[in-house]
């Protein structure tokens, strides 16, 4: 196929996604402040365009979760996250922007829940909504007591930037929707490794649990045994011993995202990383103190 034919095919196969992204672009551009301070054009048309665009983009994947409630939650969280993100970057009032950011963060946390990450969802809400946003709001209030500032009413180079960003987004979405990438899953744990792991974990005798699909449920034992047999056969096919972060593997008792599993991972495989992150936090704290203006002697 020649280049132009390829391009035509690409456009035809992804017409829905492309059209919806175009709508979204127009929505953003509608709401985005201009180069000069101009009155707002009203958010409703932009909001409609954005909603349509986001929905179209998600619809173009043509897939649903097995569970209806999950599907509904996905739609709700995705649309809220993306629309709030759009509103956040186009808001002319930084306070609103921060609040939209909080909303987008909350929705993202909802998506985390959907992806088996309840702990992360909670942690993000606590860190962002509880700490970051509030602090930022304080700063905004402190800085902008006198109301609207000119620099919040203008934005530079909106059109090219939006186009470039959507080229990237379009590339990603077209690439993955046309030919979903094949990911290399970590091979099942073979006997020796599992024994080592079992000795470590004691109660993890049941081996690995498949975390595929929307499964947070534990698979029936006989099915697991069958799977193990298949895995052993695969392992015998002269493959080198796989390198894995053993403690990060999901097990039956510690499925992906559970507090225990995540804890084993963090304080097992990533023990040093945790220490390192702690050091970075220390540096950042002391750094923030050092950056903050020194107060006068005796003053609070």
């Amino acid at each position: 196929m020649s280049g132009s034919e390829q391009l035509t095919a690409l456009l035809q196969n992804n017409s829905v996604a492309i059209v919806s992204m175009a709508l979204w672009i127009f929505g953003i551009l509608w709401m985005m402040p201009g180069r000069k301070v101009t009155p707002s054009r009203g958010v409703i048309p932009g909001l409609v365009l954005t909603l349509t665009g986001v929905a179209g983009l998600l619809l173009s994947f043509n897939a649903v979760y097995a569970d209806v409630s999950e599907e509904v939650m996905f739609w709700a969280f995705s649309i809220i996250a993306l629309v709030c993100a759009t509103l956040m970057i186009t808001a002319r009032n930084p306070v609103y922007a921060a609040l939209f950011f909080a909303l987008a963060t909350l929705s993202t946390c909802g998506l985390f829940m959907l992806q088996n990450a309840p702990f992360l969802a909670a942690a993000t809400v606590i860190v962002y909504a509880g700490a970051v946003i509030v602090t930022f709001l304080f700063v905004i209030m402190l800085a902008q007591q006198s109301g609207a500032a000119g620099y919040d009413q203008t934005a530079g180079r909106a059109a090219p930037t939006v186009l470039a960003s959507f080229v990237l987004l379009g590339t990603v979405s077209v690439l993955v929707s046309m030919a979903p990438p094949e990911i290399s899953t970590v091979p099942p744990v073979d006997d020796s490794l599992r024994l080592a792991g079992a000795a470590t974990a004691g109660e993890d005798a049941a081996g690995t649990a498949p975390g595929g699909g929307a499964s947070m449920r534990i698979a029936p034992v006989d099915e697991l045994l069958a799977q193990e047999a298949a895995a052993a056969a695969a392992a015998e096919a002269n493959k080198p011993e796989p390198v894995v972060n053993l403690l990060s593997r999901a097990t039956v008792s510690h499925p992906v995202g559970s507090m225990k599993g995540l804890g084993r991972s963090l304080f097992g495989d990533y023990l040093f990383a945790v220490e390192l992150a702690g050091t970075i936090l220390l540096i950042a704290c002391i750094g923030a103190i050092a950056i903050a203006p020194r107060r006068e002697e005796g003053a609070l």
Binding site: I183, S184, T185, V186, K239, P240, P242, V243, V244, N245
Partner: peptide
């Protein structure tokens, strides 16, 4: 996501395989 691990040795192995 594509390699399945954050461990560079594991990534190397997967990539080689």
């Amino acid at each position: 996501g594509l390699a399945g691990s954050t461990n560079l040795a594991a990534i190397t192995q997967t990539a080689a395989l």
